[in-house]
Simulated scan of single mutants.
Amino acid sequence: MAPRRCPCGTGLPYAECCGRLHDGTATAATAEQLMRSRYSAFAVGDAGYLLTTWHPSTRPASLELDPTVRWTGLDVLATSDGGLLAGEGTVEFRASYRHEGGSGSQHEVSRFTRVDGAWRYLDGE
């Protein structure tokens, strides 16, 4: 059986891509990598990872993921800053989903910043 592809759309196996971030064996090197790993966390139902990677100033006390939403694709539309040496960055994306027989998408420009050297999701519009 072929390894499961990562939901984030890189084409890599999940275990070699976002799976390494989710299990803590790697950390996101860029804002885009963190955004992709957060999308994958929604896709695989990993609320703990989402909370861990949320900026402390905007993080909710808890997070309840809807098990009836199936995330079906991610398109990164633009990035600004957020590179290896940057302290902040933005990533614009569209995430597609299926829910209760219908389909839709979420379009967002997410802001990321570093906290103690690690990328964190700050907020999005």
Rank of each mutant, 00 (worst) to 15 (best):
P3G: 13
C6T: 03
P7D: 08
G11T: 12
P13S: 13
Y14L: 15
Y14C: 06
E16Q: 12
C17W: 08
C17P: 04
C17S: 05
D23T: 07
G24R: 05
G24E: 09
T25L: 11
A28E: 02
A31I: 06
M35S: 06
R36Y: 03
A41V: 09
A43S: 15
G45H: 01
Y49F: 14
T53R: 00
T53F: 04
W54F: 09
T58W: 00
A61C: 05
L65K: 12
D66I: 02
D66L: 07
T68I: 13
T68A: 15
V69M: 01
R70D: 05
W71E: 03
L74N: 03
V76R: 02
L77K: 03
L77S: 06
A78S: 14
A78R: 12
T79M: 13
G83D: 13
L84A: 12
L85I: 11
A86I: 05
G87C: 11
E88V: 03
G89F: 07
E92Q: 11
F93R: 02
F93V: 04
R94M: 10
R94W: 08
R94N: 01
G102M: 12
G102C: 10
S103P: 02
S105M: 07
V109N: 08
S110M: 14
F112N: 01
V115T: 13
D116H: 13
W119P: 00
W119C: 02
Y121S: 07
D123K: 14
G124T: 06
E125D: 15
